[in-house]
Amino acid sequence: MTDLKNKAARKSGFNRRDFFRGSGAIAAATALQTQTAEAIQNQSPRVISGETSISLNVNGKDHQVKVAPNTTLLDALRYQLDLTGAKPVSSDGSSGASTVFVDGKPMTASTILALQAVGKKIETVESLGADAVQKAFVKHDAEQCGFCTPGFVMAVRSLLDKKPNASKEEIRGGLNGNICRCGTYANIVEAAISVAKGGN
């Protein structure tokens, strides 16, 4: 392990067929700047530019939305489906306020392109409906202004889905992707513990 930088190696075991497969699916790539619109259209159908109509599966239903490649999932949810539970707080997802489930996993809709969500199962806070976590939040007063609350509800739901009997330490260690400015953390911990213990 002495000379890290000069180690060259070749690995076997990769399936070369995987690598070749599909090569023909796209017309010979040309430099982007020389492409005409026509050329782009003649390329793989998977190259999308400009506004396009897609179907998003949100909260168990398919919805037609119009998006451009640079439309985020969050904007599609909030502006087109009027599902405003997920909130725009940080552009880079660092607040967790836009948390939704994508195929069951907690992700920030603000950093996902709407096009990436095609074919995925999207669930927003609106889909939970009187979930035990939501009831526990109310009972333990785990919301103040409430703006971060839907994101936190989703995070707690996700944590407890993964670890239904999470301990206090696991709860404290597992909910750090969200930010609350009013300072509801103590009550969120209590709410999560109560659900983990089977009640609310």
Partner: peptide, 28 residues
């Protein structure tokens, strides 16, 4: 900025979709 979006299914398709010029394409 407006951009075009591609969602390839194979490694070869990825390579075909990438530009040789810096800054023109990004892997997402």
């Amino acid at each position: 900025k407006a951009f075009e979006y591609a969602s390839p299914r194979t490694e070869a398709e990825i390579v075909d979709l990438l530009s040789a010029e810096p800054g023109k394409t990004e892997i997402l």
